[in-house]
Design a protein around this nucleic acid. Sequence first.
DNA 1: ATGAAAGCGCTAACAA
DNA 2: TTGTTAGCGCTTTCAT
Lengths: 340, 340
Amino acid sequence: MVIAVKVTIADVAEKAGVSKTTVSRILNGNYDHNTPETIKTVLKVVKELEYRPNALAKGLKSMKTNVIGIVLSNFRNEFWFNVLEGVEDTCKDEGYNLMICNSDGDPKLEEQYIKEFQMRQVDGIVINPTVRNQPLYEKLVTDKYPMVVINRKIPGLHANNVVVDNIKGGYMAANHLLENGREHILAITYKNENISTWQERIKGYQEALISNGLTEDSFYLLEIENIRVANKQIKEYLLDNPMIDGVFSTNNMLTLELIEALKKLDKKVPSEVGIVGYDDTIWSKHIHPPLTTIKQPAYDIGKESAKLLIREIKSKELTTIKNIIFQPELVARESSKEIE
Amino acid sequence: MVIAVKVTIADVAEKAGVSKTTVSRILNGNYDHNTPETIKTVLKVVKELEYRPNALAKGLKSMKTNVIGIVLSNFRNEFWFNVLEGVEDTCKDEGYNLMICNSDGDPKLEEQYIKEFQMRQVDGIVINPTVRNQPLYEKLVTDKYPMVVINRKIPGLHANNVVVDNIKGGYMAANHLLENGREHILAITYKNENISTWQERIKGYQEALISNGLTEDSFYLLEIENIRVANKQIKEYLLDNPMIDGVFSTNNMLTLELIEALKKLDKKVPSEVGIVGYDDTIWSKHIHPPLTTIKQPAYDIGKESAKLLIREIKSKELTTIKNIIFQPELVARESSKEIE
DNA sequence: ATGAAAGCGCTAACAA
DNA sequence: TTGTTAGCGCTTTCAT
C-alpha cells in the first residue's frame, strides 16, 4: 500500500533530472523551447508520480483561480436549479469551477458571502441580488470586479445584467386571460417593494388590462406577506372578491397555494376561475388541470450569464457592460381555457 | 474615488508601524501577547484599508482551504436541491464554503471533477457516486481523503456513508398498496444494475409481497431505459398487463410520466389503479389526485453529511467510519386510497 | 534549451 | 511583546 504523500513540482523536477522551471513550462504547454526527450521524460515522471499541480500555489502567483462564485437567494425553486445547471455547464466547458452559496434573501448574509468569495480570489460572481445592498453592488462595479447581475435589475447600477422581460411576461399572462373571456383578473405576487421582478410582472399585467380597455378600477392585486400565510391570504381575498374569474400568479410556489385555496373554496378551474402561473415547472403539465404558464428560459439564463461573466474575466481591456434580455413564452394549457 | 488596489498584510503592517507577524497574529485572534494599543491600532488600520486576507496565500501555508466540494449526479431533481440546502446550511454554520459540480452520472466527468477538487486542495468531498469508479473511490479511501458517500452504497467501500433505508421505503410502499386492497402491483424503476438505491427499493417491494403471502409470480417489474422513453414504456406495459391495479414508482420523475400514461389510457386513480411515489416533492400534494409518497429527509441528509465530513476534516486522529441511515416515511394521500 | 532565483501573501519557528 | 526569517508550491524574468 502506498502512503499518500503530496508530490510537488520539485519532486517531479528531481526525478526527471531537470529544474522546476522546465517542468512548469512543459506542464503549461510552453513546449516551444524544449527537447522532445525532455518533454517526454518529464511527462513520464508526471504520470508515474501522479503529480497534480496545486491550484492554490498557482493561483497565488497568477491571482487567478478559475473559479466563479454564484450567490443565489433561494434553494427552493426549480427555476434556480435550471439556472444553476446552465451555469455549471458553461463552467465545465470553459474550465472553471463553481462556488455556490445561498443568501436566502438576507442582505447581511449576501454581503458576507460576497466578501468571502473575494477573499478566495474568485475570478468573478453571478448574483441574484437581494436588492438591499446597493452600496456593496456599487463598490463591486467601481472596483471592476467581474460580475453579472441576474434575474433582477438594480436601478442605476452599471453592471452586466441578464434578465427576462417580466413586463412582457405579465402582459402575456393577463392578456391571455382576457382573451379567454375572463373579466375580473387578480394578480398575486410577493410583497416586496424593491424587487424589479414582481414590480414588472405586475406592470405588464396592468398594461394588458389597460390596452384591453379596462381602467385602474379593474386592477385586483394581492400581495402575499410570505409563503406560510399565502394560503390563508388567498382564501380570504377570494372570499371577499367573489367576482374574480381569472388569476395571474407571478410565482410558481404561490400557484400551488392558489390551487390549494381554490380547491378548498370549491371553485372550479377553469370553468369558474382561469389560472396562469409563472415558470413552466416540471409539474405544470401534470397537475389538475394542466397549468397554463409563462415559461422562462432558465437554463439559457444560467448559461449566458456564466458566458458573459467569463468573457469579462478573460478580456483584458474594459468590456462594455452588456444587458441580455430573454423573452418569456406563454404555454397554454387547460387551466386558462376559454369560458364558453 | 478610490482606485481598487489589493491591500496585503504588508500594507497594514507598514501603516500600523508593526511587523506582518503582529498583524497576522492579531487577525487570527492570538491576542495573548499583544499590547491593547497595538491591537487597537492594527484593527483600526485593517478597517481603514478594508484589508481582507487572501485565502489563497493562507491556504498555501496551511494546506487547508475551508472549502468542501460536492459532486452531484443530477441537477434535475428536487431531492438534490433539498440535500444541497442542508449541505449549504452546515457549511455556513461551520465556516466552510462550498464548491459544486454535476457529474451528470458520467464516471469520466466524475473522476475529472474529483481530481480538480483535489488540486484545489478542497478539504473534503461529499459525493453521490456514479458507482462506476470503484478504483477511484478506493484510492480516495486509502489516501485518507475526507469523504462522505451519499445516497448510494458502494459495495465493499470503507467510507462514511449517509443513506436512507431504501429497502424499508420499498417495503412500505408495496405493503401500503396491498393493505389498501391492491393485488397486482407493478414496481417501476430505472434500469441500472449497479445502483443500490433502485435495487433496494425493489428488494423492499418484493419483501412486502412475500410477507403478504405472495410469490415471485406476483412480482411485476418495469425497468425504464431512460426518462425520454418512460412514457412509452409505461403505456405499453400497462396495456400488456391490464390486471395491474397498483403501481409503486421508485422515482419522482417517473411518477409524473406514470400519471401521464394512466391519463392517456384513461385509467382512473385511485379507483382503478393505486399509486405510491417516491420523494415527497413540493407538488405531490397538489397533483390530481394528491399523491401518496415515500418521503425522504433530504435536507437532513445534506445537513448530516456535511457535518460528518467536517467532523472528519477537523479531527486529527483517525476517525472511525460512520454510517448514517435515515428512515423514510409514508405520506398517505388519495392516490392510494382503498378500493371499496 | 534550461536553470537560478525572486516573489505571490501569508504563517510560524525562533530570536530578541 | 514584537520582529526576522524561512518557506508553503508555483511561475517567470533574466541569465547562461
